[in-house]
Design a protein around this nucleic acid. Structure first.
Length: 523
DNA sequence: CTGGGGACGGGGCCC
DNA sequence: TGGGCCCCGTCCCCA
């Protein structure tokens, strides 16, 4: 019995020792793990703080930009550089700013400075051309980009964006060749320049000197430029290309674009997204959707109408026929002028290729009570939702649309009582002006985009409307079908005859009442 | 005063 | 029958 007691005591003591040892072991393990865990937590907290600081900085910037934007609404001007640059026609004037392209070069070269005369000062910006080393390897969407870095300027918050176009889609061999041999002037090489400027804080990029802004635009075109577009379009009649694929305007948060840099030849974006934004409008991925993403039958002719400033001309089958480059400009104060001399070496004027966006904003009573930019609705063609790739192009027009807030508000207020909301349900993505059908919008938007799908076979003039081309061709044919019955004077222009007849009637044409409805009036 | 391009609305045709 | 598409007429503006 005593032995038994001793045995039990010994066992108990041994177990106690073992238990203590086990506890000690466990405690040690816990301590070790806790140390590691705590270390990790500390590191995580550090990262958290860093990220939070970044976030606060970003929010600060955003709020500042918005505040300044409300003070100074921005305008958008889109201009079509068209072939002027491509033909080596010198420089391009954007509003009162003159972007001078070195003569003899059809392609902006790396480091090539662009002089932007802003009246109050001159800022020199370096344009960096990033071209696909292997266009073919990059696929049909081989693109060339121009990366512009602001190196100096009197307004550190202004940003400019100059880009070249990227040949995309069903690019004809010559177009690919143009890109691959961009160093030598090629008549068909096309470029486009997007300028984003304006006073405080462009949405695209509003950093300081380190800012870099790059937007790529893809260009699609096929066929010969020496044929008229009508021929190229293969249209039986002298019609304009269908609306759906012709106008693409992206707008939105530029940052969303950044995620689309996955294409092979995409411009190397900086690590800091706040310093470099790049849009890669690669044809295969680009949201233009010329062939696949735009479906008029679904009513989304307008879905991209704020994305890329190019126009694809499709035939009935949706085949991409031609795309003209255009230039997008977002600026604050520049007057809506286009210096034709600056870029039209062959002597024709592009005319008013871009308009003051703000003007349009204020003349919007016709639009319906809804805006596609605001409250997308599936039923309304204007309200088609943006597809997944739409973020691709949510590039340039975010601020435009933001600056459009007031106009839209006015539109919505008026629309409720205007009674025209039904009739003009198709809205211009730029100015919100309403039209009765998509084609009207498409044509109208050429005012903003500068797209001119119709080219004269006799000269190189291009027109946004088929009728204008037809009328223009009377210049070559000498046809003057409008004859004054009084003096037998003939005119090629119907209105010229009408105006001329005022001479006979003694009517003062300057005081003649305008029958034509103003942009603000209803039809 | 004329020439000519830009812009836009109306209306007809076709599906 | 309605909508899309296109042509035409018209006005504005500039050179």
């Amino acid at each position: 019995m005593a032995n038994c007691m001793v045995f039990h005591t010994q066992i108990a003591s041994v177990m106690e020792v073992l238990a203590n040892a086990a506890v000690a072991e466990i405690c040690k393990l816990v301590d070790d793990d806790y140390a590691v865990f705590r270390l990790e937590i500390t590191q995580s907290q550090k990262e958290n703080r860093a990220l939070r600081r970044k976030l606060q900085l970003l929010e600060l910037k955003v709020s500042r930009e918005r505040a300044e934007r409300t003070i100074r609404p921005r305008s958008v001007k889109i201009l079509d550089r068209y072939r002027g640059m491509a033909r080596g026609e010198g420089h391009l004037t954007v509003g009162h700013r003159s972007v001078v392209k070195p003569a003899g070069h059809n392609t902006w070269r790396d480091g090539q400075p662009i002089t932007v005369d802003e009246g109050s000062g001159t800022s020199t910006q370096h344009v960096i051309v990033i071209e696909s080393a292997d266009v073919e390897a990059a696929g049909p969407g081989g693109s060339s980009l121009v990366k512009q870095e602001r190196t100096e300027g009197d307004d550190p918050q202004q940003s400019r964006n100059i880009q070249t176009g990227a040949v995309a889609g069903v690019v004809p061999p010559e177009s690919i060749e143009d890109l691959s041999t961009a160093a030598t002037p090629q008549p068909r090489t096309r470029h486009s320049i997007a300028e984003v400027s304006g006073k405080p804080n462009g949405i695209l990029k509003t950093e300081t000197d380190a800012e870099t802004l790059t937007v790529t635009k893809s260009l699609l075109h096929t066929g010969s430029e020496h044929r008229s577009d009508t021929e190229r379009l293969g249209l039986g009649r002298l019609g304009c290309p269908p609306a759906p694929a012709s106008e693409y305007l992206l707008y939105g948060d530029l940052r969303t674009v950044h995620s689309h840099l996955d294409s092979g030849d995409a411009l190397q974006a900086g690590n800091d997204p706040s310093c470099s934004y790049t849009t890669e409008m690669e044809p295969v991925n680009m949201p233009l959707g010329l062939e696949t993403q735009t479906d008029l039958s679904r009513g989304d002719w307008n879905r991209h109408s704020s994305s890329v400033f190019s126009e694809g001309c499709l035939d009935k089958k949706g085949e991409v026929i031609a795309v003209d480059e255009v230039t997008v400009k977002v600026e604050g104060d520049a007057p809506p002028t286009w210096n034709a001399d600056s870029h039209l070496g062959d002597g024709y004027s592009q005319g008013r290729d871009f308009l003051d966006y703000r003007e349009s904003l204020e003349t919007n009573p016709d639009v319906a009570t809804h805006s596609p930019l605001h409250t997308p609705r599936d039923r309304d063609p204007v309200f088609t939702s943006m597809g997944p790739s739409d973020s691709h192009g949510r590039v340039l027009f975010d601020q435009v649309l933001n600056s459009n807030e007031r106009a839209r508000a006015q539109v919505q207020e008026r629309g409720a009582t205007s009674g025209n909301s039904k009739k003009k349900q198709f809205l211009c993505m730029f100015c919100n002006k309403g039209f009765s059908c998509p084609q009207k919008v498409e044509i109208h938007q050429r005012v903003h985009t500068g797209v001119k799908p119709f080219s004269c076979t006799q000269c190189h003039m291009r027109f946004a409307e088929a009728g204008t081309l037809k009328r223009h061709q009377r210049v070559h044919t000498g046809e003057k079908p409008f004859v004054c019955h009084v003096c037998r004077a003939s005119f090629s222009h119907s209105f010229n005859l009408k105006r001329h007849q005022r001479v006979h009637t003694g009517e003062n044409h300057t005081a003649a009442p305008s029958v034509r409805s103003s942009p603000t009036s209803t039809s």
